[in-house]
Design a protein around this nucleic acid. Structure first.
Lengths: 339, 339
DNA sequence: TGCTACAATGACAACGATATCTATTCTAAT
DNA sequence: ATTAGAATAGATATCGTTGTCATTGTAGCA
């Protein structure tokens, strides 16, 4: 076996061409005849040559690194995001550098800037709730392209992917109404998270459109965590004056919290109270009874986000309108009863 | 503001020294006077200089990249592993490149080799169940250091971190016995996963040491997934001949599966059956009733693994015996009843 | 004083690719 | 034939560091 790694020079002399020609082949540039190209490709295989990323990066001022920024307690969500980004980046020869963080930390912006500089990133992906921190995005003053995933609010950033949280939430609420529910409790997320408002609005609009009066006592706030769901459920189940027959939790983690609260209080789901969540996380399918919820193509979204970011980095696409909103899907399970 | 990024040259001329001296300061090498050093450090700050990783890597033949290989369905486990590795790597100026994979894929070894070459990794971390694939580890023929996390079996690899699964499992079984249980069902994991055997052995030895006869009908197999736990539980609860009063699932996901099966079958936990898991994942604390389980310092382990790997890469430590086994801890909750 | 030893510093090459510019060959149009 | 222009190929500088080796300065010692 070869003792050392083959370099572009070795390939060049092996295939009797200049190193520049090899470089052209590697980078799929014009100006290489088919014959030469195949000869070079053969040599590359024969010598088991892999371009040295450091050298490529040094010369072409790229790092082939994309940063993925997140602060999300939902490990399932995160896992999907990571897989999506990872796969697309791998295909395109990029590596992913993770940046977990705390969105409430005041130094976050500075840390992020520091990170980008140190790591020499070629591009950055922001996921919720970071994607909704307008101030941060503004202050980043990026010289590299940025893609924002699921920004709740309108974003000024040219690159984004998003999901139709409003419609999904609207449809789910209609579903509950169709099942005969009129007193529907709602557990919203915390401020600052873009999804919070959309999901709430979907619920509110569905009620209005069905001529159901909105009762503020039916709406309570969580922070997308299991515990906050349990606490919110206790409140909703205590304020029994408005006789709730169903609860719509803004995500599955909180829905699972609701389920625990119900179990504790010996309130049967779905007999006494129907329950729906949002996210289609394993939590929802593994609960007992399994929880009706809303599925979103998280991994696909992440993958798409990475793709448009990479296209932008490579200037491959000058096309506009690459941004995309992905459809959600209602997933019916055991936690809803018709009344 | 500066138009372009500062380079080592800029720092050198700013502080009136040679670039080599700046390099010495950056790399904490000997042979720089305190005065010079502080002057250089000042310039670095003043110019907001960050060394170019590509150039450093090219010259010193490093990539400052560490690969993290995993194929684990447990997102909570994975998240802890990632955080631990990430933090330590960040502190030491390394980035982490993820390599999710399918441990059953026959081309895995080749893919991994390809990945290492392409990415030019400086080091590699293998997590279960990959860490137990002896054949793969052997065939990797690595020229870079490798650290293996929680190898179930003895590993020939010089670098490893591990947990005392046997002892933890033994202790937990003793706890159940102390609570009066003698007919204890056990759901083991699948073959190939190192933890499977240790956890089973702990259970078996505890029974023997307490003069309890081992009943094979009490032992069933899962694959560490929720679904497999549910299926296994159905079996155990059906073969009711041996009158089980407790079930020990090899991990929390399977324990949660057991809980769902029990709910479905209207078997109350812990009144009819006590239940314990392994891993201290959120699943266990969020279940109702909450599940008694075993906690391991996963994040710490991962962090330590990254540290000894980096030390090895940097040749900082010629010390032996860096490997370490971490203690587990029993976490008592609501799913066990004294009988 | 003269010598050595060692700490501090610097000059310059080298890492492995790409960019720029130039040179050659080939084709087709005049 | 001649030549413009496209297609193809190569020579060489360059990216921003670190490695190697040489040089300088200074303290210690006989």
């Amino acid at each position: 076996m070869d003792n050392k790694k083959a370099t572009i020079k070795d390939v060049a002399s092996h295939s009797q061409v200049s190193i520049k020609t090899v470089s052209r082949v590697i980078n799929n540039e014009y100006g290489v005849s088919k014959i030469t190209k195949s000869r070079v490709l053969n040599s590359i295989k024969a010598l088991d040559y892999n371009p040295n990323k450091a050298a490529q990066g040094l010369r072409s001022k790229k790092s082939f690194l994309i940063g993925l920024v997140y602060d999300n307690p939902d490990k399932f969500y995160l896992s999907d995001i990571q897989s999506g980004v990872l796969e697309t980046c791998a295909i395109n020869g990029f590596s992913v550098v993770l940046f977990p963080c705390n969105y409430q930390k005041s130094e976050l912006t500075d840390e992020l800037i520091e990170f980008i500089k140190k790591t020499n990133l070629d591009g950055l992906i922001l996921t919720p709730p970071i994607s909704d921190m307008k101030e941060l995005v503004k202050n980043l003053q990026l010289e590299i392209p940025l893609c924002v995933v699921s920004p709740g609010l309108l974003t000024s950033n040219p690159l984004w992917v998003s999901s139709d949280d409003f419609k999904a939430s609207y449809d789910m609420t209609c579903h509950l109404i169709n099942q005969g529910h009129r007193d529907i409790g709602f557990i919203k997320g915390h401020k600052g998270h873009g999804a919070t408002q959309h999901r709430l609005d979907g619920y509110l609009n569905a009620l209005s459109d069905n001529n159901i009066k909105i009762d503020d006592r039916n709406i309570t706030e969580g922070d997308f965590s299991f515990d906050s769901g349990e606490i919110a459920a206790k409140k909703l189940l205590k304020n029994k004056s408005p006789k709730i027959t169903a609860i719509f939790a803004s995500n599955d983690a909180m829905a699972a919290g609701v389920m625990k609260a119900a179990h504790k209080a010996k309130i049967n789901i779905p007999d006494k109270i129907s329950l729906v969540g949002f996210d289609n996380s394993p939590t929802a399918s593994q609960a007992w009874p399994s929880i009706t919820t809303i599925g979103q193509p998280i991994k696909e979204m992440a993958s798409y986000a990475a793709q448009i970011l990479i296209d932008n980095i490579s200037n491959k696409s000058e096309k506009k309108n690459v941004n995309k909103t992905f459809d959600s899907e209602l997933i019916f399970r055991e936690s809803v009863r018709k009344i």
